[in-house]
Amino acid sequence: MIGHPALASDTAVLVVNGKACVVSAADPNKPLVFVLRDELGLRGTKVSCGHGQCGACAVLIDGVEARACTTALVDVLDHEVTTVEGLGESDIACSLRDAIDVEQASQCGYCLPGMVVAATALLARNSDPSEEAIADALAPHLCRCGTYGRVVRTVRRAAHAGAVRP
């Protein structure tokens, strides 16, 4: 934090979902997840374990999956944050949502936004992951309802849809 130009005042500017957002800089070590939810109203990013063990708070930082619970505000000031709300209408995000609907890949759904974020990052770097690759990539994500099989099928389906998309 010390000396960061963006923290010279009481506020900081964050780039979230492509927009510059002014947030409080009172505590530069505040976990990103609370900044997103409580200050910016982006509640799709879920609070769960607080230790980076479950994946419910997954976001993208410069396109790379990260944990919003163990990432401090100060760590993202020069970076672009994308939340589940900001995945928008990209091909991958649309394919994933369509596949979720076909596979009905949820029960309580609390883990789902984090999985959508993680699967988006996976498909961006590997357009045709095997079931094993999907399970490995999503291994840091917990689902208590037991929807793992459906989520793997969802990502496979989204990958196939991406392959045939014109």
Partner: peptide
């Protein structure tokens, strides 16, 4: 499910 997938469902 759609709202849950978009992250807009209110828990």
């Amino acid at each position: 499910l759609p709202a849950k997938a978009h992250g807009t469902f209110t828990y």
